[in-house]
Design a protein around this nucleic acid. Structure first.
Lengths: 144, 144
DNA sequence: TGGCACATCCCCCGAACGGGTGAATCTCTC
DNA sequence: GAGAGATTCACCCGTTCGGGGGATGTGCCA
């Protein structure tokens, strides 16, 4: 579930390194081209600081911004409430707004079975309605 | 809705500025204390680059990480679909898992009125069920 | 001033949902 | 091998939802 994220981080690192390389090359080139420091050391330091701060901000944002669609399933809550595999599958389809009949069709069971799973879910989540179950499960981070 | 966020950004900027000031002071002090550059310029540049990159990453992460509970309501989607004030209020309570009767009580209207608003919401969101309406509204960023 | 959007309410009816009870498998564990 | 838990299904009954109408009042604006 974190594959896309890993790729993003890798690409971020690559772009960062490339930018550093290009920056170093530019500095060398400036020194070579004009043989001397054009500006005073302080200005160079400030420029470099600014540049790398900007770069750092960019990197930090990319690292912190979790890609759309990613989601850390709160397994602890699921375990703590003792929600079974099948019940979780029903919960997922429930959150997508499917009816009991549709859920049953997708899981290859009868609507009655779906109702039983739902009843267990309502018990464990301590709710009375399907909409409440979705809301609560989402609040607990069990579903995206 | 973004007050806590503004405070976080402000504090981030303040801490950043303070760090820069302290860093500048340290450099000055080093130069003053030892009269000369202890290391070569390249190493200084690398150190500064690393320091400010780290600082930038920290700043970027703080900026990008939206505090828990914050949420940008997608007003464009709401406007585009022509969802009225009252309908949105119903939608909010709907997403919390309330029944029509409960929604009516909280909005001081009859369940029949709630049903009418819901019917309009179903039309505008192009869905058939309340759970679907919640799912779609969430997908469109209209509700948290 | 007549249409338009909005909000409010009513009734009816079929479908969906929720609660309760019971029961048959199957798997894992003690 | 007994018991616990998970999964599957059935039936009944009452509540809730959803869709179809129709109705009234208000405010806006062309």
């Amino acid at each position: 579930m974190g594959q896309g994220r890993d790729r993003t981080v890798k690409r971020t690192i690559i772009i960062y390194s490339l930018t550093v390389a290009v920056g170093a090359f530019l500095l060398q080139w400036l020194e070579y081209r004009y043989a001397v420091h054009v500006f005073s050391t302080e200005i160079y330091i400030v420029l470099i600081a600014l540049l790398f701060t900007a770069l750092g901000v960019w990197v930090g944002r990319r690292i912190a911004a979790r890609p759309r669609g990613s989601f850390d399933k709160n397994v602890r809550a699921i375990d703590y409430l003792g929600i079974s595999e099948r019940e979780y599958e029903v919960l997922e389809l429930l959150a997508k707004g499917h009816s009991n009949r549709e859920i049953g069709e997708q899981l290859f069971v009868s609507p009655n079975t779906v109702k039983t799973h739902l009843a267990h879910l309502y018990d464990k989540l301590e709710v009375a309605r399907r909409t409440q179950a979705v809301d609560r499960a989402r609040a607990l981070g069990m579903i995206p």
